[in-house]
Design a protein around this nucleic acid. Structure first.
Lengths: 100, 100
DNA sequence: TTATATTTGCCATTATTTGTCAAGTCATAA
DNA sequence: TTATGACTTGACAAATAATGGCAAATATAA
């Protein structure tokens, strides 16, 4: 799963922006940016923020996808993937409740 | 969140087994085992399997908790934790469907 | 062909995780 | 009190993984 990279690539192509121009804005190698878009590497948090600004993305949505890719990497190909996600989800909800 | 470690500690204490005996069975340092039970370190997959055998655990359940701890570590303290989990969950369900 | 864009593979550097040890705490017994 | 046993903690080196950057390879179009 590479939802974040797919989103960035879509937005970049929508604007007919070159990979080397985008990577220059983030101050990273073009090859790195290529790998991020294709999901071969994970973008840094600071780069996510920059991309949100550059493409005027919904920050919550972008962060969700970026995080989801990382979550998915943990459970990919695991028999108990779904159960694990549900356990984690319950904990997140519980923490939200008790921290109020 | 440390559901896996909590489970192991509970089972070990239930049997009045010493940390050094358990760690000897897994062929790891007592300090390591202590850290695993307290969630300071993550057990290796092979150790999870050994613990399942030693304590006659439900394997699916144990694996779920072990994985859930790792998933939770990724999303802990993230504003979009819940959204991210739901995105990942949908992907897992989708993959399950298309791989049939 | 040539030029430009992107991808790929490799490797050095950096960061993170792991294993081990020794010293520490804590509770209990002598 | 001192001693002992169980466990925890902190520090460190070693192992492992992630990252950045380069150059070569590939692709796409003129």
């Amino acid at each position: 799963m590479n939802k974040f990279g797919d989103l960035i690539r879509a937005k970049r192509e929508e604007q007919e922006m070159l990979l080397r121009h985008l990577s220059a804005e983030l101050d990273i190698d073009t090859a790195q940016m290529s790998k991020i878009e294709r999901g071969e590497r994970t973008a840094k948090r600071e780069h996510v923020q920059q991309l949100v600004t550059i493409f005027k993305l919904n920050k919550a949505e972008a962060m969700s996808l970026w995080l989801a890719d990382q979550v998915y990497a943990v459970v990919a190909n695991e028999d108990e993937a779904l159960k694990a996600l549900i356990v984690a989800e319950k904990e997140v909800k519980y923490q939200k409740k008790v921290s109020k």
